[in-house]
Design a protein around this nucleic acid. Structure first.
Lengths: 221, 221
DNA sequence: ATGCGTGTGTGACTACGTCACCGACATTGC
DNA sequence: GCAATGTCGGTGACGTAGTCACACACGCAT
């Protein structure tokens, strides 16, 4: 019962009454999945709500034509809440989630989710706040795809993905997928960034040498 | 109590127990809003969930740059459910909803919504099913904007907007807004359709003369 | 008729996406 | 070591979509 520790990681869950916390801990299960695992996706009717304790899950969508775009990432302390809609509506899911790192998560079974939603206003708040966040993310994606310039979007993504180190191991194709564009477009844009001295390129590797410059470009959205 | 008639219009609400139906009818209010009214939007924290009995609400998003794109429409028998996330998460909403026609709707106050969510599994199902539908819509928009060709998207939209009559009163600019693109692009595309004999154009008016052709193009998504 | 606001047409240009292809590099098996 | 193979990245030519700067057409009010 003392692994209730994970609850602290989740913004909205602290406020839950102790009785509810207990149910949550007792009736859900801590699971770990290795990098690359498909957490949910078309054909997989999910029957758990996942709360990510550690790691990140990349949620992306693949169109009929086979092209792919990253919708958002679920980070530690967040939940795969959009799956709940399908979870309860028994619908197939158009997007798929893949573990980008080794992931530790708490899996809340459908029935438990439903009980909690019934019994705890705070839990409902938690769920709807998570929804609001994701939907906002989707709105942002639509805005960027529809109206954004790729140099700006790419700069933004590079900074976002690099984290503190300024080093990232990605292929041009992977970056193209992030933004839902073509590999060549990314290649050319990266060359341009390199020419300006903002990054250094090598096979499967990008290293940011002038992060502020990239941030400035990204900010000019 | 006999205006409970509207409940029948909503797919998921028929299954509600009578007691719940009664609460719903008693504690919500039928409202009518005229064409053009802003139903929700940035700066307006919504405190009602609207169930549309009659009319349609157009939900669109405007980017910082002032460009606009239509996200989806709420039709009779559906609900503005995405607002509930903000409703309960107390967040501002990035999108705005405008009554496209005179609208009759049932407004469920926040507290009633919360009570129903607590007390009725069927109501929760209804809400999450509505969510699933909207989210699916958003995914479709992303897919189309990112990977779709405008001729296809335009053909699809023309057919969708025209309804049975095959006549529609829209400016090229409005169609551009529908798809999140530029007026010139629409103008040229419409000219092309006209050249092929699929439509006839006049100021502020489009009349579909070969709907099947448009549908065929739209289907080749 | 004159003027004005809104809606539409057009050409030149830029940005992005597509296609076809080639060469560089890494890995594996020999 | 060398060759075979697969992945990754570079490049030119081209097509489609979005941008910019206009000019013109129509409807309405004065």
């Amino acid at each position: 019962m003392n692994d209730a520790a994970w609850i602290k990681r989740f913004e909205g869950l602290n406020r839950l009454p102790d009785a509810i916390k207990e149910t949550l801990v007792k009736r859900s299960q801590v699971v770990t999945v290795p990098t690359g695992t498909k957490v949910f996706g078309p054909g997989l009717v999910p029957d758990n709500l996942l709360l990510l304790v550690e790691g990140t899950v990349k949620v992306s969508q693949t169109s009929e034509s086979g092209r792919e775009i990253v919708l958002y990432r679920v980070e530690a302390g967040q939940s795969c809440v959009l799956t709940t809609a399908c979870l309860l509506a028994h619908e197939a899911y158009a997007a798929e989630g893949v573990a980008e790192t080794d992931v530790t998560a708490v899996a809340i079974p459908r029935v438990v989710f439903d009980e909690l939603a019934a019994s705890s206003p705070q839990f409902r708040d938690f769920v709807f706040a998570a929804y609001a966040r994701r939907i906002t993310d989707l709105f942002r994606v639509i805005d960027e795809v529809a109206f954004g310039k790729i140099d700006v979007r790419l700069a933004d993504r590079l900074v976002g993905l690099a984290g503190g180190s300024g080093e990232l191991e990605v292929t041009h194709q992977q970056l193209a997928t992030e933004l839902g564009t073509a590999r060549e477009v990314i290649s050319r844009q990266l060359s341009e960034f390199q020419k300006r001295g903002w990054i250094r390129l090598s096979r499967g590797h990008v290293s940011l040498s002038d992060t502020p410059a990239l941030e400035r470009l990204a900010a000019s959205a």
